[in-house]
Nucleic acid binder design. Structure first.
Length: 374
RNA sequence: GCACAGGUGGCCGAGCGGUUAAUGGCAGCAGACUGUAAAUCUGCCACUCUUCGAGUUACGGAGGUUCGAAUCCUCCCCUGUGCA
């Protein structure tokens, strides 16, 4: 189901990941759609974004958020998350592991699992690897993630090792539960007996020896794909890069490798060239909703950040990026976008998110081109 | 004309003798954002000087009371409402 079509000298790979809902050309950037929506961007736009008009190949949704609202049973009754949100292409659900980290004030961790207070109404909920799997199976994304703990930064080696150990035990439990229940996915039987794919998550914080241990432990489990988690949580960029570079060495070459939660356009480009096959990040959409857009310098090809709110764009008739080719740049001026943003119009967030996502998609498309040629 | 109620920094609006360059909100300007508790958050926002910090003007106007006034008094100007 994963095929490496070519590898560059630096280790970058051009690949093809075949999933129940379709084929994903890698390296790929996956827009994040936490609550079964890539915030502000309608599905039909997602499908046609980008310079080539081919749109996002795969998007994310979040287990914890959908479990709380509207509830995974409801989504299962609605036919699964694909049918629910009318997304026919591949999808990946994050396990809720990251919420263990980001909602730190609202949870209590034990060996068994995590007790959460809902950020919506304060109600108590218990999440374990088994729960996460059950919810992810009910949602029915193509790729599901093991339930992990993402340690805070900085954390001591001991603390990190302990947390990593828990992640490993949880990964085993995730896998067992998944193996026992994988035919319960709402669309089972629709794709020639295919089931979901469960990916492991390498932890180990900022310690290379732990990262190695984590990778080796998970590789033993022979999962169909591996993620590198726990990065971009506040550490310097060189550290992120270093951890990725090291961890890639210890992950199998014939399986997709996914760095979770990155990054800026120049980062995803760099990581893809290093051999990362999949990445996701809320940045393009969040930044878009906040007025930050990315563009490329014509002279040196460098990525520049542009704050659309700035006064200097008030009467700027040009697009965000003249060479972008996205729907936003094809039609709207910086001046108009600034006005929409300043007026608090929801369309601003949509248009800027579309631009940023297109920018990310195009960036990956370009890297795929390079890798195919190499 | 009479009677009430008011006039506060770009706007709205607190304060009603000292700790008030003056709470808030909005607008404005700038910044942040990395497996989404984020259409969010942070900073600046009278003037001058070099950031700290210091100084100078400020609560309709002019006087006055007081050690001290946006806050109390007098007169004037203006606005709103009601009655003529």
């Amino acid at each position: 189901m994963f095929e490496v079509l070519g590898t560059s000298e630096a280790g970058g790979r051009r690949g093809r990941l075949t999933l129940p809902h379709g084929v994903v050309e890698t390296p790929v950037f996956m827009p994040v759609g936490t609550a079964a929506t890539v915030k502000g961007v309608p599905q039909d736009v997602l499908e046609t974004m980008g310079r080539d008009g081919r749109g996002a190949q795969i998007i994310l949704a979040n287990t914890y958020h959908l479990y709380l609202r509207p509830g995974h049973e409801l989504i299962a009754r609605m036919g699964g998350v694909h049918e629910f949100m009318s997304w026919t292409r591949p999808m990946l659900t994050d396990s809720g592991g990251f919420q263990v980290f980001s909602l730190a004030k609202l949870r209590k961790i034990s060996e068994e699992g995590v007790e959460f207070r809902s950020h919506l109404d304060g109600g108590k909920h218990f999440f374990s690897p088994e729960h996460s799997m059950a919810v992810q199976i009910a949602l029915g994304a193509d790729v599901m993630m093991v339930f992990d703990e993402c340690v805070e930064t900085p954390a001591t080696w001991e603390r990190t090792r302990e947390s990593m150990g828990l992640t490993h035990r949880w990964a085993e439990r995730s896998q067992s539960y998944f193996e026992a229940h994988k035919t319960e996915v709402p669309w089972y039987g629709k794709f020639g007996g295919q089931t979901q794919k469960l990916f492991g998550i390498v932890q180990g914080g900022m310690y290379a020896d732990l990262r190695r241990q984590s990778a080796e432990t998970l590789v033993e489990m022979d999962l169909p794909g591996y993620a590198i988690g726990g990065l971009a949580v506040g550490e310097p960029r060189e550290v992120t890069r270093e951890m990725i570079a090291r961890t890639l060495e210890w992950l199998p070459k014939d399986k997709p490798r996914y760095v979770m939660g990155v990054g800026y356009p120049d980062e995803i480009e760099e990581y893809a060239r290093m051999g990362v096959d999949m990445m996701d990040c809320v940045l393009p959409t969040r930044a878009g909703r906040h007025g930050l857009v990315f563009a490329r310098n014509r002279e040196d090809g460098k990525v520049v950040r542009l704050n659309i709110k700035k006064k200097e764009y008030a009467e700027d008739k040009g697009p965000i990026d003249a060479e972008c080719g996205c729907g936003t740049c094809a039609r709207y001026s910086r001046g108009y976008l600034r006005h929409l943003f300043a007026s608090g119009e929801a369309l601003a967030g949509t248009l800027l998110s579309v631009h940023n996502l297109s920018f990310y998609l195009d960036t990956m498309e370009r890297v795929r081109g390079e890798l195919a040629a190499s």
